[in-house]
């Protein structure tokens, strides 16, 4: 066979392959139109949701044949209701909310935790010498509600309880100014409970305040503050869709932690009013929360769920334990 004939044969084969690939691609697209998926976020647009933005903008959803709509949240929006109503297939909530919901008969399933650790901290000014929960005894601590009924207040109470700090030794006061460490610098209080490591301390430091943080999770208050959940029905009947959704989203978060600057840019396109410096520092602060170094991004730990439930039981927010094996799963998280 001559060289020419080999080339001709090759050319023909190549043409066949290209043709068949093109046909296959066409066929795939024609056979499966993109699945429409809506996600009800838990708060206003911010870098916290950068993974979603990245997955959308970088085409990870499209690669999974998903047509994803991100619905911003707000104080008046309950993601559980949105998913319940079917307005969204996925929502973002907290581990304790999900347990309470399940105890009330709403069977949601957590499929991923955006933050692998509890971001709640007690923020103090470094000068205050308050380094441990026990140091709070005799101090004034800012809280979210006067009856200490919010999830954040309960977690603070749990913290006090676990560290054997008598809640009566602590003077509670309502936080009125959520901006940075304003309430601390004003002298209104010695410590602010329920701060997000990714929010108030970041702002405080941007404001030039030297603050110290007492992480709830260091004292056994292990709660997931932003888990991605969906209905039990969807995880059972369309696990493949959930898998694609979570795979693409986690890929987005992996992108975000590896490219924090781009993640911030993407967030700013969602809401141009966002502060670049704050978002940038928030991003830096949340990287260790997202990627803890030990486990894959998004994966959850049974002990956290147990801890959460125990807290809820201890504070009578639920009357009986629920089946923790049903409320979360790591099966959609790639190892």
């Amino acid at each position: 066979m001559t060289t020419k004939k080999i080339f001709q044969a090759l050319r023909f084969t190549t043409a066949l392959i290209v043709l068949s690939l093109a046909l296959a691609a066409c066929g795939a697209k024609k056979n499966a139109p993109a699945d429409k998926v809506a996600v009800q976020l838990s708060w206003f647009p911010s870098v916290e949701f950068a993974g979603f933005y990245a997955a959308l903008e970088n085409g990870y959803y499209a690669d999974e044949n998903l047509d994803v709509t991100l619905i911003p949240g707000g104080p008046e929006i309950n993601p559980l209701d949105a998913v319940e109503s079917g307005a969204a297939q996925f929502g973002i909530s907290t581990s304790d909310s999900l347990i309470i919901a399940r105890s009330e008969g709403q069977n949601y399933v957590a499929v991923s935790a955006i933050y692998g650790q509890n971001p709640l901290v007690v923020m103090t000014l470094s000068d205050s010498q308050i380094t441990k929960p026990e140091d709070l005894a005799g101090k004034t601590v800012g809280v979210f509600s006067s009856d200490l009924s919010t999830v954040w207040d309960i977690q603070f109470l749990a913290l006090l309880q676990k560290t054997n700090v008598d809640r009566e030794s602590v003077a509670f006061t309502l936080i009125n100014d959520y901006h940075g460490a304003n309430e601390l610098t004003s002298g209104n209080m010695d410590a602010m409970s329920g701060s997000f490591a990714t929010n108030e301390p970041v702002q405080a430091r941007l404001d030039g305040n030297d603050v110290s943080l007492i992480y709830y999770k260091d004292y056994g208050v292990d709660v997931y503050s932003n888990v991605i959940f969906t209905t039990e029905e969807l995880t059972q009947n369309n696990a493949e869709l959930v898998s694609r959704m979570i795979r693409a989203t986690m890929k987005g978060y992996q992108f975000a932690v590896e490219n924090p600057a781009t993640a911030v840019e993407l967030s700013l396109t969602r809401d141009p009013a966002l502060d670049l410096a704050l978002q940038t520092n928030t991003m830096q602060a949340q990287i260790p929360l997202i990627d803890t170094g030990g486990a894959p991004i998004g994966s959850m730990d049974a002990s956290v769920w147990e801890t959460t439930q125990q807290i809820l039981l201890d504070f009578n927010l639920i009357s009986a334990p629920i089946d923790l094996n049903a409320i979360y799963t790591n099966k959609f998280i790639a190892p």
């Binding site: 560290t163 999770k217 170094g293 030990g294 002990s303 801890t307």
Partner: peptide
Amino acid sequence: GKILTTQPFFQEGLKAPYTAPPT
């Protein structure tokens, strides 16, 4: 005073000598 109940180095360390991966 920290409570590290959920930490692997505690849970594994109860059973046998353990080296926790960098976290």
